[in-house]
Design a protein around this nucleic acid. Sequence first.
DNA 1: CTGAATCCCATTAGATACTG
DNA 2: CAGTATCTAATGGGATTCAG
Lengths: 129, 129
Amino acid sequence: MSDYFRNTVIKKLNNGDFDCTKEFTVSMFSGKHKLLILWILINNGPQGFSYFKKNLKGISKKVLSNQLNELIDDQIIFKQDFFTGKVRHTEYQLTAVGKSLIPIIVALNDWGENRLKQVMLVKKFNSDL
Amino acid sequence: MSDYFRNTVIKKLNNGDFDCTKEFTVSMFSGKHKLLILWILINNGPQGFSYFKKNLKGISKKVLSNQLNELIDDQIIFKQDFFTGKVRHTEYQLTAVGKSLIPIIVALNDWGENRLKQVMLVKKFNSDL
DNA sequence: CTGAATCCCATTAGATACTG
DNA sequence: CAGTATCTAATGGGATTCAG
């Protein structure tokens, strides 16, 4: 992702540069895994750290941690801790702000699925020649 | 952006790994400036290279070129060249695929504007204390 | 179990110069 | 005008280590 980019946008906002709405919006989504994380939360409900680790194939703990923290900073998700004895379990959930993204994320996902089908059809057609 | 990420997704698709719809979708949008580029095309119609250069504050020619080419590769926009004598002018336009993104981009932008207003209100409130 | 800190290398962005 | 080529500096990701 782009911590640098996010920080740049945050600085701009703090300096009263309101002319960066689009950059702001992009900064909310930049990060390879954020859409996946949100998708999981939308479809499977609140989940813990290890659930994401298992389901986001190939993601490292560091990157996952970064992405989750950025989403928390942006108030799109929040975290709760539970203890079983000394063992900590966590649960990440969508905030109200995060929930307001659901229609967009669903639309984005639908678009991606349809587009992927198109791409695959073209590929198949070409290989059938 | 992430040429690396895009290439990874493309490789996966070529290897028959269809289990990366979300990654595919994200790869379409990854890139700080793509949303801005599309936003310009949606609102201001077809534009040339220098128009983007002027309006995407701080973007370098190299990065702009990359972003435009990725969008072309993904068949979201296409390019036409015109010559006035030996001087080349270009025009980038949305394809049908690109146009299918308009509702999503508009929704994304609306969301971003509203969210930014919220953020600003909170900031103002805090500074008024 | 969750997650922060560190080290190191791959990738990307920016500046500059050059071409058709 | 619209890029491409090249070089360098800044960033980001992965692996490992450590801690609550």
